[in-house]
């Protein structure tokens, strides 16, 4: 890493938007962790006498089609969405980055084979891959995460490979080669740290995309199993009541929006802070 860690933190803290994003994420994470303490009601407790009630003092975000408290469901839904985002990106990066590094650095037939596989996977529409994988694994949250992770992996491999190639032709790497460093040393010491920024950018985008993908799969009925809430499955249920009970669609939608936005802000800040070429 070309910039000392302390400097990176300092740079990050100078960006109000990034810090705000981090605060919101910390907020979301604490909400997810402390959900049972925060939620005013049991998120699965039904009440047939209070179906689709508009927001009120008792139910700040109203009640849903089964008379459950929407606020409590949004609070508990944070668990599913955050988990889905983080786990699927970890899966994707865990597969994609080593593969990309390997392809970009070794070249030759390894690169050719990996690249063709990535081409093939990227050439299939992302959501179709995810849908087919989820259908195969059986619709539930864990399988949705695996499906999203696997379908996202080629993007990481692409980015890691491209960054490796770009860095590989840079002067200081060429210099490292020319003074007789072994291949692995060049890869680990000089190449790997420099592909962190683009991979981070990709991870940011993918976190956002993964949370949205979870919502999309749930929107198609392929995500979280009822009655446990996730923001996506709440939107799925809200579809039928858009005109009569818009709050059912608005609040989970806003929660997704805020959460994803915060990840994006933090990712932006991190990238700039990590960028060795930054001012």
């Amino acid at each position: 890493m070309s910039a000392p860690r302390r400097l990176v933190v300092a740079r990050f803290l100078r960006r109000p938007a990034a810090v705000a994003g981090l605060v919101v994420i910390v907020l979301f994470v604490s909400v997810a962790v402390l959900a049972p303490l925060i939620a005013p009601f049991d998120p699965v407790a039904t009440s047939w006498s209070a179906i689709r009630k508009a927001p009120s003092a008792a139910h700040w975000m109203g009640t849903d089609e089964n008379g459950r408290d929407v606020l409590s469901r949004v609070v508990f839904g944070a668990r599913a969405s955050l988990l889905a985002g983080v786990v699927s990106v970890l899966i994707a990066a865990g597969i994609g980055v080593p593969a990309g590094l390997l392809a970009g650095f070794s070249g030759g037939w390894i690169d050719a084979v990996l690249s063709r596989l990535v081409d093939a996977m990227l050439a299939c529409p992302f959501l179709i891959l995810a849908i087919a994988l989820t259908a195969f694994l059986g619709p539930d949250l864990t399988n949705a995460m695996i499906a999203i992770g696997v379908s996202t992996a080629p993007r990481f491999m692409r980015v890691a490979r491209a960054a490796t190639l770009e860095v590989g032709s840079a002067d200081y790497v060429q210099a490292a080669w020319s003074i007789g460093n072994p291949g692995w040393r060049v890869a680990v010491r000089h190449v790997a740290p420099n592909i962190v920024p683009p991979v981070l950018v990709q991870a940011t985008l993918s976190l956002a995309a993964a949370i949205i993908a979870e919502a999309s799969l749930s929107f198609l009925g392929l995500g979280q199993q009822p009655p446990s809430p996730s923001w996506g499955s709440m939107l799925n249920a809200a579809q039928r009541f858009l005109t009569q009970a818009p709050w059912l669609a608005v609040f989970p939608g806003v929660a997704i929006f805020l959460c994803v936005l915060s990840f994006n802000l933090v990712g932006d800040g991190l990238r700039d802070a990590l960028d060795p070429r930054g001012s």
Binding site: A208, S216, P246, F257, L265
Partner: peptide, 29 residues
């Protein structure tokens, strides 16, 4: 920079289908 970022991030942070439904309700209905 912040304004441009906000525009970009807002678009990126909204689920496609959600934005679509909201637009239909607003613009069409």
């Amino acid at each position: 920079d912040y304004v441009a970022n906000a525009i970009g991030l807002a678009g990126l942070s909204m689920p496609n289908f959600w934005l679509g439904i909201m637009l239909i309700l607003l613009v069409s209905v």
